[in-house]
Design a protein around this nucleic acid. Structure first.
Lengths: 205, 205
DNA sequence: AGCGTTCGTGTATGAACGACACCAAGCCTT
DNA sequence: AAGGCTTGGTGTCGTTCATACACGAACGCT
């Protein structure tokens, strides 16, 4: 499940992020803390291995996954670590294993050093790609309100945004379609639901 | 020199670019065409291996090097290919081996399929990072004229630029220092030489 | 009926961007 | 020496984009 045995030449590691209220990542409990990682099998792709790591560690499937960077393994570790990051809405994640939990990635994620750099780098990447890749939408359901979307932007970008400016900007740079129903939840006016049309696949890398 | 023997588990491959007049990359001649690549040795880092590949293929040292992406090797190939791209001014490259030459990366670089995607992806990455990372300066000497700089931007960005707007923009987004001498070359007014001050290292990845 | 909460909308000001033309400095030719 | 050719170097104006900012609407709760 978390086999970084010295002899494994290539391992894939995945930092899985979700938003519950803050940004959180999936952490394997233990005295040091790790993120899911597995040696790459003989006949599987790197991405398949990364997905398998998530599956075996937490029983999680169907997430957005993108390669992050490839690190030297260091002495006593694997030869190389191919790091991925994964994103998913929190309510679509059903953790089916024991020994995993959500943790705060900032300021210093509580995992072993070689995994810490992965988590930190993934956070930077998220913030960097937020404006030009459909990062934020990966944290939301298929249909979402503009309020939810703004919250995601604020959490990843680490700054509060003006509501009216946000909406103008977002409508200018993404192709959002306004559905005909709304979501009512709470003692206030219901919010219109939107969908992202042209989910141009983020050119990975 | 170009050992992608089936048994090698991890190889590093490097697409080296330079600008002579157009953008060009270093190609190993042969019936199919390849870029420099080598199996990673037991006790060397990925980056060291990438540099060694350039050295052994062409006797080239001291280039800007950045990781690009890690690919599955495919059947009959290595297990994974860790791809890098390298940049250098053309006049600082002294090719000391036979069987290598410069080739045009567009529209379809003449190399084997698995290396073609590396070259293409590197070109996209260059254009993408041009505005916010000191990519262009890697093609120039320590001191350069604004005309040279503009030419580099035009070649990588694949579009002509207005001279005055370019200068305004560049001076606003980079910290250029104006040296006191100029370069005269040709039947026209000499050009002032500049230097890039704050070469903030591009946060790799 | 009134309160509390989030939803939803437009305007006015300053900043950045794009289009655009001319003189300067050097070399070469006649 | 004069004129022509080539690249270097500079400023303005109009448009677009970003920022700051306030109030009524719709709903649930009491």
């Amino acid at each position: 499940m978390n086999d970084t045995k010295p002899s494994a030449p290539i391992v894939a590691a995945v930092a899985l992020f979700t938003i519950r209220d803050k940004l959180e990542f999936l952490r394997l409990e233990g005295e040091q803390g790790r993120i899911p990682s597995l040696p790459v099998e003989e006949d599987e792709t790197l991405e398949a291995c990364a997905r398998r790591a998530l599956w075996e560690a937490a029983g999680i499937e169907e997430v957005f996954l993108e390669q992050l960077y490839t690190f030297d393994g260091g002495p006593g570790g694997p030869r190389v670590i191919v790091a991925y990051y994964a994103l998913a809405p929190h309510d679509r994640l059903h953790i089916r294993r024991a020994g995993v939990s959500w943790a705060d990635p900032t300021p210093a994620p509580i995992v072993v050093e070689e995994h810490r750099v992965i988590v930190e780098r993934a956070c930077e990447r998220l913030a960097g790609k937020l404006e030009y890749a459909p990062i934020a939408y990966q944290f939301l359901a298929d249909r979402f309100t503009l309020g939810e979307l703004q919250t995601v932007y604020e959490i990843i970008g680490r700054q509060a945004l003006d509501k009216r400016n946000f909406r103008r900007r977002i409508r200018a740079s993404w192709d959002l379609v306004e559905t005909h129903d709304a979501r009512r939840e709470g003692p206030h006016r219901p919010a219109r639901l939107y969908r992202l049309r042209d989910a141009r696949p983020p050119l990975e890398g």
